[in-house]
C-alpha cells in the first residue's frame, strides 16, 4: 500500500441506445485503485457495479453501448486505446474473474489447456513451459493435486475448484490489477470463506491490486481496504472500509447496513428495512437516485448531490450524517 495510483476512473458513464432513446446505466463514476490495495465496489442489482467493471475491461460488446469518461491504467487511457493494445493488457496486466465459474470456462477443453492458452497469448513461452507454470499456479491456489486437476474438464470439478482455476488463470501473467466480479456469490459459504482467504493471501504473494465487485457487505468487511457504495448508477458513498462501516454517512449506506440480518449481537424483532425498491434504469429520479426511498429527503434532493470528499471519506448527499 504505497499509495501509488494504479487505476483511475473518472466520470465513467455507460448508456445504451434503445428504441426509447438513450438509457443511462452508469452515471458518472469516479474512483482510484492504488497499488496493492483491495477496493470493493458494492451495490444491489441494477446499481451499475458490474457494468462499471466490464467498461474498465472494455468487455461491453453491445454495439448500442455508449461509454464516456476516462479510465487511466498506469496513466494510459484505456477507453481510447486501439483494440490490439487493449487485448495485450487484458489477461496480462489486468485480469478478470467472474461470478459463475460453472459457465465461465469453455466445456470442451481441460482447465490446464485453458490456462496454458492465456499464458501463451501473453508470454513468449513454449507449451511445456506454460504447462509447468499452469500446474505451479494451480498448486499455489491450494489445490492438492494440481497435475491431476490440470487434466480435468470443467464439468468434472466442483464450483470452488473451478473458481480456483479461474483465479489461477487470471494470475497466470502476473496482473497488476485483478477485477473480481462477484467471485463468491455462486459458492457455498464454507467455500466462499476459502476463496476469500485465497484472495487475501494472493494479494500478499502476487502483489496484485484487487477491484472486487460484490453485493455482500460481509464480503466487503472481510477483505476490502476501501469501499465504494453504488446506488442507481452513481456513487453514494466511498471511504476506508473500517470508517465507512463504523460511521456510514449516506442514508442509503446507513439503511443498507441496518437491513442486513446479523449472526451475532442482539436479535431484532423486525429488520429495519428500506421501503420501496431500487428504481429501474428507465425511471430513475432526476436528482438523487435514493430520494424516493429516503426518510431524510427534502426538496433540495431533486438536484444531483455532488460527491464531496472530506478526510478521505466521500458522500453524495445533501443530508449526509455528520461524521
Amino acid at each position: 500500500m504505497n499509495g501509488e495510483t494504479l487505476l483511475e476512473v473518472d466520470d465513467l458513464r455507460v448508456s445504451f441506445r434503445t428504441g426509447q432513446g438513450v438509457l443511462p446505466i452508469v452515471e458518472g463514476v469516479s474512483f482510484v485503485v492504488k497499488a496493492g490495495e483491495i477496493l470493493s465496489v458494492v451495490g444491489e442489482s441494477g446499481s451499475g457495479k458490474s457494468l462499471t467493471a466490464l467498461a474498465i475491461m472494455r468487455l461491453i460488446t453491445d454495439p448500442n453501448a455508449v461509454i464516456t469518461g476516462s479510465v487511466r491504467f498506469r496513466g494510459q487511457d484505456l477507453l481510447g486505446l486501439p483494440e490490439p493494445a487493449m487485448r495485450s493488457l487484458r489477461g496480462g496486466a489486468i485480469a478478470m474473474i467472474f461470478q459463475d465459474p460453472m459457465t465461465a470456462l469453455t466445456p470442451a477443453y481441460t482447465v490446464g489447456a485453458q490456462i496454458v492458452e492465456q499464458i501463451m497469448a501473453h508470454r513468449n513461452a513454449g507449451r511445456m513451459a506454460a504447462r509447468t507454470r499452469a500446474i505451479d499456479l494451480l498448486g499455489a491456489m491450494g489445490i492438492a493435486s494440481p497435475r491431476d486437476i490440470a487434466g480435468r474438464y470443467p464439468h468434472q470439478l466442483s464450483g470452488g475448484m473451478r473458481q480456483r482455476v479461474m483465479i489461477a488463470m487470471a494470475l497466470s501473467c502476473d496482473p497488476a490489477l485483478l477485477i473480481a466480479d462477484e467471485p463468491t456469490t455462486a459458492l457455498d459459504v464454507t467455500v466462499q470463506a476459502q476463496i476469500l482467504e485465497l484472495i487475501l493471501r494472493l494479494r500478499g504473494e502476487f502483489g496484485s491490486s484487487v477491484l472486487l465487485i460484490t453485493h455482500d457487505m460481509g464480503v466487503v468487511a472481510k477483505v476490502a481496504d476501501r469501499v465504494v457504495v453504488m446506488y442507481a448508477g452513481a456513487i453514494a458513498e466511498a471511504g476506508a472500509t473500517r470508517a465507512l462501516f463504523a460511521r456510514p454517512a449516506h442514508p442509503y449506506t446507513i439503511g443498507l447496513l441496518g437491513a442486513i440480518p446479523r449472526l451475532r449481537g442482539p436479535r431484532l424483532v423486525r429488520l429495519p428495512a428500506i421501503p420501496g425498491a431500487p428504481p429501474a434504469p428507465h425511471d430513475r429520479p432526476s436528482g438523487c437516485g435514493f430520494a424516493p426511498r429516503c426518510a431524510a429527503a427534502t426538496g433540495i434532493c431533486a438536484a444531483h448531490p455532488p460527491l464531496i470528499t472530506h478526510d478521505g471519506h466521500a458522500v453524495a448527499c445533501f443530508h449526509a450524517r455528520a461524521a
Binding site: T190, Q194, G218, V220, A221, K222, F245
Partner: peptide
C-alpha cells in the same frame, strides 16, 4: 464461522473447512 459478518472489526480467528 464461515459467514462473513458485515463488520470489519468482528473478524475473529476462524476455522475454515
Amino acid at each position: 464461522s464461515a459467514v462473513p459478518e458485515p463488520d470489519p472489526l468482528a473478524q475473529t480467528a476462524r476455522t475454515i473447512l
